[in-house]
Design a protein around this nucleic acid. Structure first.
Lengths: 243, 243
DNA sequence: CTATAATTGTTACATAGTGTAACAATAAGT
DNA sequence: ACTTATTGTTACACTATGTAACAATTATAG
């Protein structure tokens, strides 16, 4: 085993640097191929899936902890983050999935292992540019990959509830310019922006009223035309006006 | 000191029953005399003010902990509660106010006292019927009283930020029937409902468009007239339709 | 008993926002 | 030159909301 992989082993983590009982979970949204996607971890050799998460250092703010987790899984800084809910049901006290994970990762562990306590989860959703992200698995996981929101597997504990509430909040904030600004590339066509909105809302939108509403919002600027190579009028390219 | 008061002493609390590092704070809104008010605690002999709060038992959900805190301070069950944000800035690690409080309450204490750790605060706002509430101080406080939102004193730690964010959320949810249903009595006039909305939004509203909008929402039912004793047409009384 | 003042309920009109359809403009293939 | 597909624009209808006008109601003053 290489030094680098050794460094990644969970048994080398100093759990004492973190606040006990509180975790952070992140629903990281990306948009690609006309589909809304979420980053999901698969734990090693267990077939268990989970949202990316982490813990809060004793001298770190909640938001900084979330930024650190996001940076670790995506490689990105300056991510759009929104703290939307804190989960504290007793469902979260079921330690069987984490025991399964530890059995497949640690030489030995006991009931007092840091990961086997009850955690209250402060949850954030993030909006990222799919093309800029290099998903990185954490020390307990094989993979960190984009999953289409319509093909999400069953996740551990209450992570499906967390995803659902994140998606509900994203729907409510659909009219914030943050949605298009952070999920699309710098320039895009009106059809691409409409496709994004349709993926988030899960329903089709009227083309002309969407166009008018977006343009009247005043956040967009036309910056030229895009040759599509297709046999029809070429669409304008737009970008968000940064104030 | 009576047995009853002895029971209320903070030194008799078994702090070990609670999760460490996590607290609950509540912004409890009431409406009276055409003014929006919030319940505020004053710590004994210190001149320090704070929002009502509490901690989470190790086998209790977050929402149940919030309900318990609300019940303790207001005597009410079945309160409208909304978890709106979790606060985790480093501002919360300043232990000077709590030390001042303990110096005036405990015979002795040391740096490891449960109340002298960093707490992440899961915050709720509550809407209650002013007339049904009997405010009760907690073991560290002299008083728990209604303060007009325009006369709020400086509160400890980040409690003013917590109040502000609660108020922002309340403004956003102004069109939810929960606002009138929980802050007013069972029956009320249109002018009373409009006064409540104006207090929450901090601005005057147009009378006729407000009237029309509320009636078109379909949540209200007329149930008779109210004699005001004043020299003008008497207003209808309304109540919310419970589905 | 009548006039006055104050507030409430209703209606009319103007404006803004949105759903819908029609139509012109454009780009590439036949 | 004709066809097809998509985009941008405009026209019309309908709804929601801001504003003003007016009628209805209740108590008080004279």
């Amino acid at each position: 085993m290489s030094l680098k992989k050794e460094h990644l082993k969970s048994s080398n983590i100093d759990w004492n640097q973190f606040m006990p009982g509180i975790s952070i979970d992140c629903v990281i949204f990306g948009y690609h191929d006309k589909e809304l996607k979420v980053l999901v971890l698969e734990y090693k050799k267990t077939g268990l899936f989970a949202l990316p998460g982490g813990f809060i250092k004793k001298d770190e703010t909640l938001d900084d902890a979330a930024k650190r987790v996001l940076k670790e899984r995506t490689g990105l800084s300056n991510i759009y983050l929104n703290q939307f809910h804190t989960f504290g049901s007793l469902k979260r006290s079921d330690h069987t999935p984490m025991k399964t994970v530890l059995e497949n990762n640690e030489a030995s562990f006991d009931e007092t292992h840091f990961l086997l306590q009850r955690f209250i989860s402060v949850s954030y959703f993030a909006l990222v540019d799919f093309k800029k992200v290099e998903p990185v698995a954490d020390s307990l996981s094989d993979t960190c990959q984009w999953i289409d929101i319509n093909e999400l597997p069953s996740l551990i504990l209450d992570h499906n509830d967390i995803y659902q509430k994140a998606h509900d909040h994203l729907k409510k904030s659909i009219n914030s310019e943050a949605v298009g600004l952070n999920l699309l590339s710098k320039t895009f066509t009106m059809a691409e922006l409409q496709g994004l909105h349709e993926s988030i809302l899960g329903k089709e939108l009227n083309r002309t009223s969407f166009h008018r509403k977006i343009m009247l919002s005043g956040h967009l600027k036309r910056i030229g035309k895009k040759k599509t190579g297709k046999a029809h009028r070429s669409p304008y390219l737009y970008k968000f006006i940064q104030q």
